[in-house]
Design a binder for these strands. Structure first.
Lengths: 111, 111
DNA sequence: CAATAATATTCGAATATTCGAATATATTTA
DNA sequence: TAAATATATTCGAATATTCGAATATTATTG
């Protein structure tokens, strides 16, 4: 059963990559990076999250290979490395909205 | 800025749904449910994870609306509620494999 | 080179997650 | 109804995650 061990390891890596999306701040950052790169300061301002905290989340996204960095002077611009991540995030968001719609239907019928 | 608050709440819910996928056991369970429903016992056996643990993970998947249950005698059969979740999981897995391939390329070139 | 600006890192406390062990809750069958 | 089977829940310990505060690093500018 050596392949079972390998499968488990793949599931672990897969879960680690999914964890990248399992935080509201990181989702917001990824959404902001959807169409264009942004500097750390811009991301902090746009999300109203402290610079150090944004930087920590960006470090996680970097480690997991989800974003790329480009240095320009003292600024560091972040961008999405693989748009598939955005695609996956969007699908999960669509599921969320379907769930919300379903709950609305339920409560509407309960009146 | 009332809409900003709402946006933050959506990101929180979105992240909670993503968390569903952020565990190796749950990913394995979802993969086993991909094509057909399975009972708790079957899932425990197929994953070699204790029944209580599988049950806990199934409870999380249930709470997040990711799976459905069907009772038949003492058995409870679980199935995927919304196939989009599998779709999203598959996309993230594809990203993982792209990352692995990229690392292989790097190490191959380093020889 | 000193001052400034932008970003990153380290540390610690609060919180959340995971899992095993034990137990509880059906449901079926003898 | 008692025993057996399948599943769920509760609790606690170990571990992981998150965030703020303080500090460090790097690059630019005067």
């Amino acid at each position: 059963m050596i392949e079972a061990k390998i499968a488990k390891k793949i599931y672990r890596l897969h879960a680690e990559l999914c964890k990248t999306l399992a935080d509201p701040t990181r989702l917001e950052v990824l959404n902001l990076l959807r169409n264009s790169e942004k500097s750390v300061g811009e991301l902090a301002a746009l999300t109203s999250v402290r610079q150090a905290t944004i930087s920590q989340h960006l470090a996680i996204l970097r480690q997991k290979g989800v974003v790329l960095t480009r240095k320009d002077g003292t600024n560091i611009y972040y961008s999405v490395k693989n748009p598939k991540i955005i695609e996956a995030s969007d699908i999960i968001k669509a599921v969320l909205f379907e769930q919300i719609t379903e709950m609305e239907t339920l409560t509407a019928n309960a009146r």
